[in-house]
Design a binder for these strands. Structure first.
Lengths: 339, 339
DNA sequence: GAAAGTTATACTTACTTTGAGCATATCATT
DNA sequence: AATGATATGCTCAAAGTAAGTATAACTTTC
């Protein structure tokens, strides 16, 4: 025990392999009732798209977050408001360059929220629908057909592939929990669990690419239907972002970072639905939002609706002081599930 | 715009300043009704204690978490069960070696939970009471005297030091939110907010050490009473761990990672109280725990109590499948606060 | 210009959960 | 046997929730 050198810092500095720190941003907005994320496709990522990212520069960046903001501003001309760190990934071989002798990328993922107003494509960057990359996550029109027709059967194959009995049990458990099978309910926050499970089961194209192996034609056909591919581990970061955001809107008023300064209650509901991937009970939603004191009527009226004009509301900042966990309650409308 | 080199990875590899990735673990256990954390005091950290940590080795470590587990095992002979990544910090000058030309440390903090049974000091490592480092966080015997006598007045001084009006307002807001003043309630999860505020206000010894300045004798006296010092930014990591854990016990059954295989409901309550830093309503606590199906009676009886023997329970793993967010509910007993 | 469709919002009702407390059971100690 | 400690059962009012119905205020269609 304690075979390590006494000065671990110096040891690191000299001895160990090369590492680069990448700062990546999942920049999220909601428009047209869809959650969207900003994607870039610069030459060095081709042909895959990816999140805006750049290396951390210890000389120029005082903090990691500052570095991230600088990179995003440079690459997309967007000035970020709300920014939150998500997770740091350092798994081997998530970047093809590593196999070719490149340094190990350690990527620090961030979630940033911007308003619809800022939503225009700039240069190489475009806004992509979240659900394009995670089609199984959108339950607004009931359970996505993809789940029953493709994903669950494939997961069952993966389950059968288990070498040992305990391994099989563990796989079964994970599948049940992540995908709401075997008595568990679908938890819309477990986005990352689901993605990682699909990755391990080989249904995600990135898994084959990272492994440096061509998938069989059959498998490739499956992967083609399981969401669009991104570069490196950016889809994983996006999954983390989605999961975090779905959880966070419930206990912090982050949803308002995505809304225009004034909005109707229905617009607010639509935004929450878009993020949550579920339909909400309208009357209860308004009651909850009103009771929690999250919004305040502006007295103005929207004229953009088809029917009766709706009142415009704005976010009531003071809630943050009044309640311990001021977030939007999410009264999910239960749709009958096919078990 | 887009003045960056096309291949950002190669650019990083060559051009930028040196970075090391440190993996640090806040290892938490509960015993004697106190939350404890494992601290080491190897030569290279002297005279300050610190969390177990070591550099990430891309050649040897397949993932960051694997690297962390390896380091902890080597340094403390502890085999970790539950491990969770917390946050990645990369702020400038949190390590004195950096001023002397050392590389920028980027530290990835982890939270690990171990049972009381594993709780013995090994070699250089000792278990320290959490509240030794955050004395203002323990509200089990009412509001800590320290808050009113020392911290709040000092924060008010810091408030007055604000240069501009908006800066003053911002400081006031932060103080109110973090410390439950001006109409806000004390939120036991905002551990990191409070620590960072105290750090900025100069009440934390580490702030002076990081800045490379000696504090005035008066200030030093304040710092001496505001919790014990740790090396580098380890106290910040510990704050993050505490905040995360306090939040997480409410929606994931992580508390059981800290309990022996069987326990009485009162022991469970004591553990939750220790972590939360608040007293709970006993009858309601039991009702909640029972109703949520978190525990199952073993049929055995504890003989360690003073009064009527208590029944022994064990964790019911299946809850994880039944409820969307199975955690221990925390029915805090409100003690009258002096505003 | 009346009917139909759309959207907004108010209100009802049965049911569940919570907060706070009282009461009682079962032990050790004096 | 009395006292004190802990464990556990139970009550009850207040508040909150899910799932509706009802009605209001507009646009579009015929």
């Amino acid at each position: 025990m304690n075979a390590r050198p006494l000065d671990r810092d110096a040891a690191t500095h000299r001895g160990l392999g090369a590492v680069v720190i990448e700062l990546s941003a999942a920049i999220v907005a909601v428009s047209d009732e869809a959650p969207k994320t900003l994607l870039v496709s610069p030459a060095d990522l081709a042909p895959r798209q990816g999140l805006p990212y750049g290396p951390f520069d210890p000389a120029g960046h005082r903090t990691l977050e500052e570095g991230l903001r600088a990179w995003v501003q440079e690459q997309t001309a967007l000035h970020l408001g709300y920014v939150e760190q998500l997770y740091t990934f350092g798994d081997r071989f998530r970047d093809p360059k590593e196999r070719a002798g490149g340094p190990r990328p350690v990527s620090v993922g961030y979630l940033a929220l911007v308003r619809q107003t800022a939503l225009k494509d700039v240069g190489e960057s475009t806004w992509g629908d979240w659900y394009r990359y995670f089609p199984w996550e959108d339950w607004r029109d009931g359970q996505p057909a993809l789940l029953e027709s493709l994903i669950v059967p494939q997961l069952m194959d993966w389950l059968e592939d288990a070498k040992t009995k305990p391994d099989r049990t563990r796989r079964q458990e994970r599948i049940n929990l992540a995908f709401g099978l075997g008595g568990s309910a679908w938890d819309n926050e477990r986005v990352l669990d689901r993605y990682e499970l699909l990755y391990e089961a080989g249904l995600i194209l990135e898994a084959s690419l990272d492994a440096g192996q061509e998938a069989s034609p059959k498998r490739a056909a499956v992967q083609a239907r399981a969401g669009a591919v991104l570069t490196k581990d950016h889809r994983r970061i996006l999954a983390t972002a989605m999961g975090r955001l779905r959880a966070k809107i419930k206990y912090r008023p982050v949803i308002f970072e995505l809304m225009a300064p004034t909005f109707t209650l229905y617009q607010l509901q639509r935004a929450v639905e878009a993020l949550s991937g579920a339909r909400l009970h309208k009357q209860n939603f308004r009651r909850l939002v009103a009771n929690e004191g999250l919004v305040v009527p502006t007295g103005h009226i929207s004229d953009q609706t088809g029917g009766r004009p709706a009142e415009l509301f704005s976010f009531r900042r003071e809630v943050v002081h009044e309640r311990p966990a001021p977030g939007v309650r999410v009264p999910v409308k239960v749709s009958k599930r096919t078990t």
